[in-house]
Design a protein around this nucleic acid. Structure first.
Lengths: 207, 207
DNA sequence: CTATGTGAATTTATTCACAGCA
DNA sequence: TGCTGTGAATAAATTCACATAG
């Protein structure tokens, strides 16, 4: 299996592994067994071993996996080795929460700019970032920002995406609960934070 | 295929369909073809037809699907027909954003209570909800709240979950980027809003 | 002629079971 | 003995192609 393409589902799990490995590294551990990592993350150990087997040799039988090497390799696969600058568009409640959310840093992301359409918000400084008018979006290319997070109301999502694509953005994380259409070169991941709640009752015992 | 179990992946997509169907209904449409729904949601039309085929007969060849019937049926499957009351624990930035987020209502959720550990926040009123001390969590059972949303810092996630389970909660949407362990009867869905961003670079063209 | 509904084919992912190494 | 790594087996999901109904 060594030289096969890494399955999409494995790619989806890599950030989860990364989180667990970074935590273990922080604790001073140097290696971890698939079993221990499994318990910590709530994933099966054979799933972890299988996933890791798609790339390289990081484990020592009887001991476990070399944490540092594994972190390095996962970062390489996910192309996270360089710090990536991202722009946030829409500084409403959700936008504010994302600006303040510490979790982006551990994956190497730096939210470097924030935009809004509301004149009252423009110029305000949040988390060391000065909010700019959306008309400034076209400066993103020069500023070497090619990732964006959309947190605008859903009826503004598509036009925001259009402006971002025009500004040279190549990846969009869309928190507006609305599908957006972009040229094939641009990758979009859409998240509706309410949607996951919607399938919780299905899995809950009757009552 | 009519009488088979609905695949988990289909269940995951049902809330997406619901969103599209509710939008179409709002526009005054009475039926919609798999193709139109597909374009709107960014999903393949054959995937939609296959998914719908797992339950009942809602389509008319040459016309499309009956929107109202379909909404009713999806709500029934997801057990969303009754308004469900949910509690939110952790009124930080993300918690505030979720309290203000309108998207929960369309799936029939009502965030009916909010809790925090910080005495300065307790008693404050946000979106018509008075923030209570976490020690009040044990009143949830009496108040018939059996769903909860966790937005506390990650080191407090497990103990929050424990308190929720003790209070009779049966489903948890966990926004703390940390796996939590609960008895088998309780369903947990964990979301890390940064994690999805982490796999964006992998799918982006080089540059 | 348009659009559903579904068996069958294909692809993809998960799970198992165990050989082999430290 | 403990834990990795991986072929093989199983399961699940996607995609196709087309018969069928309005």
């Amino acid at each position: 299996m060594r030289y096969h393409k890494i399955p999409d589902e494995t790619i989806r799990r890599l950030p989860i592994y990364l989180r667990g490995l970074l935590f273990s590294a922080e604790q001073g551990q140097e290696s971890i067994s698939s079993r221990n990592l499994a318990d910590f993350l709530g994933i099966n150990s054979w799933q972890i071993r299988k996933d890791f087997s798609y790339f390289g040799d990081f484990g020592t039988p009887g001991v476990g996996y070399d944490i540092k090497k594994l972190i390095k390799q996962i970062n390489k696969i996910l192309k996270l080795r360089v710090v990536r600058r991202a722009a946030l568009v829409g500084v409403g409640n959700l936008g504010l929460a994302i600006l303040a959310y510490p979790g982006f840093r551990i994956y190497g992301f730096d939210i470097a700019a924030a935009f809004d359409i509301n004149p009252k918000k423009i110029g305000r400084k949040i988390e060391n970032i000065t909010i700019e008018d959306v008309s400034n979006l076209r400066t993103l290319k020069k500023r070497q920002i090619n990732l964006a997070i959309i947190t605008v109301p859903q009826d503004a999502a598509q036009q925001t995406a259009d402006a971002l694509v025009k500004a040279g953005v190549k990846g969009i994380l869309n928190f507006s609960p609305h599908h957006i259409t972009v040229p094939g070169k641009v990758k979009v991941i859409t998240i509706d934070i309410a949607m996951d709640l919607a399938r919780l009752p299905y899995y809950m015992p009757a009552g």
